[in-house]
Computed example of a mutant assay.
Amino acid sequence: AVDGVSLDIKAGEFFALLGPSGCGKTTLLRMLAGFEAPDAGRILLAGSDIAQALPHERPINMMFQNYALFPHLTVYDNIAFGLKRAGMARADIATRVAEMVALVKLEGLEKRKPDQLSGGQRQRVALARSLARRPQVLLLDEPLAALDKKLRESTQGELMALQRRLGMTFVIVTHDQEEAMTMADRIGVMNAGQLVQVAPPRELYETPRSRWIAEFVGDINLFDGEVQSQDGHRLSIATRDAGTLVVAEPREPRDKTKLAVAIRPEKVKLSRRGPVNDPGHESAINRLEGVVTDVCYLGGATSYKVKLATGAVVQSSMANTARLDSDTFHLDQHVVAWFTPDDCLVLDQ
């Protein structure tokens, strides 16, 4: 489930584990918590190996996906449960619970049972219980999955603010890419039990290490081809589906001749006749003509699919800058999709 993973998480960092279902991210989280034992290797926390320590002996708490609240206990007693087990004095427990209740904004709900709370309130109780013993590390297993979109977005912001205020290390597991991009300082992408890339959100999105990561993180257009020529840091790549594309390759020249050209949809511009031939568009030399086959209005942007003469489909995402639809394109309209060499990313096939 977890295959030779080696990973460093910094103190005070908000770190996300991202990957498809069954990739091993929750197993890795459970190993950190102590619910799974590694077959080999070490788990170091501030220099001490805790791989064989029992869960309650670790300065680590875990917030579960289903919150795992005790249904017969009140909000107060749910939050106080771990403190009582640790033998804390009653007066100190009351002070700590009041502090946690204020931290997650649950004042006035202390006497309610979990079935008298909304999903968002139950999530806050679980968070307060996880934080009550002041762990060095807080593990979160898809904690926002049960919330609706609006509440999930507001809770993301609250979690980020809370983590900064406490200076605590948060490790979150999620399959929601947008959630990981929004919240994490760095993201570790897992696939088939292995850690395939660790990077800040922007680096992960703009410069994925492999074709698999490029396809998994966000939407992307991919054209397989062969290198025709190279002029400095510019490659001309002959593709089967999009003709010859010119791409900027800032790294050292590649040995491989078979490469894939990748372009994110938001980098692909659409126009009725292609880019205006002026100095501002000199670099827009990649032009693909086709017909609009799909239009999806998403509020802030509109997503288009353009079918080329070769049968290949190009995705474009255009910001909706005007209130009216004067700048939009409609089904069956002939358009030119264009992008610059700097918009392209070169990946191994």
Results as ranks from 00 to 15, higher is better:
231 D>I: 12
34 G>A: 09
313 V>I: 15
89 A>S: 05
281 H>W: 09
89 A>M: 09
96 R>V: 08
255 D>S: 09
6 S>T: 11
153 E>D: 06
190 M>G: 03
219 D>W: 13
193 G>D: 03
23 C>M: 00
6 S>A: 12
139 L>C: 03
136 Q>H: 13
35 F>T: 03
72 H>P: 00
218 G>V: 07
36 E>F: 14
37 A>N: 10
96 R>S: 08
210 S>G: 05
242 A>E: 04
30 R>E: 03
268 V>W: 09
44 L>F: 14
225 G>E: 10
34 G>P: 03
104 V>F: 13
5 V>W: 13
43 I>T: 09
244 T>D: 04
46 A>K: 15
123 Q>N: 05
113 K>H: 08
4 G>S: 11
198 V>R: 04
145 A>Q: 10
104 V>M: 10
163 Q>V: 13
7 L>C: 06
270 L>Q: 04
267 K>P: 00
270 L>E: 04
193 G>H: 05
256 K>L: 09
296 C>I: 14
193 G>A: 06
184 A>D: 02
12 G>I: 14
53 A>P: 02
155 T>W: 04
173 V>M: 02
315 Q>V: 10
66 N>P: 01
314 V>G: 00
110 E>Q: 12
138 L>D: 01
179 E>R: 01
76 Y>N: 00
121 Q>R: 01
296 C>R: 15
93 I>H: 02
11 A>W: 15
155 T>L: 13
80 A>V: 11
279 P>M: 14
325 D>C: 12
301 A>M: 13
133 R>T: 06
141 D>H: 02
299 G>C: 01
177 Q>N: 00
139 L>V: 05
226 E>R: 14
335 V>A: 11
198 V>C: 04
145 A>C: 07
325 D>H: 15
119 G>V: 07
335 V>F: 15
4 G>Q: 10
294 D>Y: 14
70 F>C: 00
8 D>I: 13
44 L>S: 07
44 L>E: 08
253 P>D: 08
89 A>G: 03
186 R>N: 02
177 Q>A: 03
82 G>H: 08
47 G>R: 05
230 Q>D: 03
58 R>F: 11
309 A>T: 12
177 Q>K: 01
155 T>P: 01
298 L>G: 02
331 L>K: 05
23 C>I: 05
337 A>F: 15
198 V>P: 00
319 A>E: 04
273 R>S: 11
329 F>L: 09
124 R>A: 08
326 S>N: 12
127 L>W: 14
272 R>G: 07
164 R>V: 07
236 S>L: 12
92 D>S: 09
287 R>T: 06
257 T>K: 15
346 V>C: 07
248 A>H: 14
148 D>P: 04
324 L>N: 08
183 M>A: 03
66 N>T: 06
321 T>R: 08
